[in-house]
Design a protein around this nucleic acid. Structure first.
Lengths: 340, 340
DNA sequence: AAAATTCACGAAATCGGTTTCGTGTTGACA
DNA sequence: TGTCAACACGAAACCGATTTCGTGAATTTT
């Protein structure tokens, strides 16, 4: 890289001190107009840009927010990033993005790297493996170092920090209730393993809705998907039973369910209703289009970053973690159109 | 944030100089074993982490790569990011991600912010608006400052730097040839406005394939989509004509075409074949699934970072821009299954 | 026993800025 | 003419590390 022009260069060239240059560039009243003009002209001519590292070292602020996501090729997470970036930028922050790839080890490493002062705070959604392990030491360390931290979507109670989540129980309830209202009785639930708490919460909503309709939960209709195995094959199993509705906790599961239904000769939504989660492009463009629960990832990102910046800039000694719950909406599409 | 422990703190507490501490922590031979043990024990106990800003200021290296994308809620770009992050991390770099949102102004601002020393180099895919304006001054400035820069996918010849692109002409040819081989004669092309060069290049491939089959290009069959307007309505127009094949330059256009075909009562692939671009989830999960040209975003990301890091770490005075062309593959699916 | 090494550590410069505190010069005022 | 304030600028400390060079003491060599 080309040798950058510094304040020192300017000072030497113009025969003044570095303090004068610094002040002149900030239009300080201490410096005479003549000198200011001269210095500013020189700086412009040579396209002087203050070295941000020097500033950061002095102020101990990087104006950077670290974001750690389990993955990115995923409609929900990429939407969240958009929300984060938008607000962060508006407030003068940049974002450093890392991915845990659902791996505990990578999450620990990334957290360590980012917490050495490269960022002012962190926004994280916990990796699957970490949730499974239930080992949150790396997060607890972060909290005890008092590095501002906001968790979103995949959060746990053990970590004392600000959180942004969707109303998963309510969303699960809404989705299931919608199917019940459509006259469906034998509703399959395609969910995640229990350690993924969002899945568990959505299941609670599902069970609540069933109970309200005096339907007994049939564990044969509930299937927990192992992501490492063939997803479609796992979902096919639940179709061996007599079902008339499917509630899938994400859009990939929903799309797979739809495909299987078609292969089995079932008509959607006439013979079977399908509802998904995460309002992504698959749901929108599949045919029939899939009714989903919209998670409002964009809003989540915005809220998370606002919480974080609030925490960064207003260092209150009284630490009371906040939890923001984003309500979710039913996005009605063809896959649950009541035939009546 | 909690007061961080510095080398100075350790020095004072242990009654030695900061240089001794620094050397002891790096296990220098200059320091006696006793002193080293004492200092290292203290550092571990209080969880000392060197301030990365101080290091960066000293070495003038941030070990951060800036990435500017037009958008992120998009299969191709999120895949590229994955590729970038993977290689960058492996080589000890982190990535700072920004979005231009296809806006010229935001691109200029972002470029300015990132080029003040916060990153060692940049990977960029140019915003649509910038391509339209043909105003690349901000990039030329970057180049003249000799800040390492790699452009990918949306690149222009005016900017002298390393580039990674897909073989767009070849890909367009492959896609069109595939339709022709399927016996299609009246193939519509759904592309972007001319200023988006990838669209133009793919069109060249399309025209080349037609010419080879002695088919005259019919401009009525070519439609350039304005993203600001209703996409579906624009595509519907081309369906007013008698067509038996559609080549869409991205998967959203392809998905829309499929939907319209169905609405018109056309059977895919019996009555009409459809082929898209970008091997995303929509193509995979729509029904029938859509044949596409796979762009290998992951590979592009990897290659781009490797070029960039090479440029960052081996400052050669002889600057010869490299251009890597990634070949694309046809991913055969149901939407072009030949009925024969 | 004197000279030469080795050892173990500290002082100070450096990276590129900001900021506090002085200080010499000028002008105004009594 | 002496005093005092305003003005315009510089010296130096500071942020948190690294690194070069120097130095006193201990040890080895001759």
């Amino acid at each position: 890289m080309k040798q950058k022009i510094t304040i020192k260069t300017i000072a030497k060239e113009l025969g003044v001190s570095t303090s004068t240059v610094s002040k002149a560039l900030k239009d300080s009243h201490e410096i005479s107009k003549d000198t200011k003009d001269k210095i500013q002209a020189y700086a412009n001519l040579y396209n002087y840009k203050p070295n941000s590292l020097a500033l950061q070292l002095r102020t101990q602020k990087t104006k950077v927010i670290g974001v750690i996501l389990p993955k990115i090729v995923h409609h929900f997470f990429s939407t969240v990033i958009m929300g984060i970036e938008e607000v962060a930028n508006k407030k003068g922050y940049n974002i450093m993005v890392c991915f845990s790839n659902e791996s505990y080890k990578k999450e620990v490493e990334t957290l360590k790297v980012l917490s050495n002062g490269s960022v002012d705070g962190l926004i994280v959604s916990i990796a699957n493996e970490t949730l499974k392990n239930k080992d949150f030491k790396h997060f607890l360390d972060l909290v005890s170092e008092e590095i501002p931290l906001v968790l979103f979507d995949r959060v746990v109670d053990e970590i004392l920090c600000d959180k942004v989540v969707v109303d998963d129980v309510g969303a699960g309830y809404k989705a299931s209730k919608h199917l019940l209202d459509n006259g469906r009785k034998k509703i399959a639930l395609i969910t995640t393993p229990k350690h993924v708490n969002v899945g568990t919460l959505r299941r609670q909503g599902y069970e609540k809705a069933l109970i309200e309709s005096y339907i007994k939960t049939d564990t044969n209709l509930i299937i927990e998907i192992e992501e490492d195995l063939d997803i479609k094959k796992q979902i096919e199993k639940v179709f061996e039973q007599d079902i008339d509705g499917v509630f899938a906790v994400n859009e990939i599961y929903a799309a797979n369910a739809m495909r299987i239904a078609k292969e089995k000769g079932l008509k959607v939504p006439d013979d079977i209703s399908i509802i998904g989660f995460t309002d992504g492009l698959i749901s929108e463009y599949s045919s029939p289009s899939i009714t989903t629960i919209a998670q409002h990832g964009f809003t989540m990102g915005q809220q998370a970053v606002e919480l974080l910046i609030e925490r960064i800039e207003n260092e209150t000694d009284t630490f009371k973690p906040k939890k923001i719950v984003i309500s979710s909406d039913l996005k009605l599409r063809e896959s649950t159109k009541s035939s009546s």
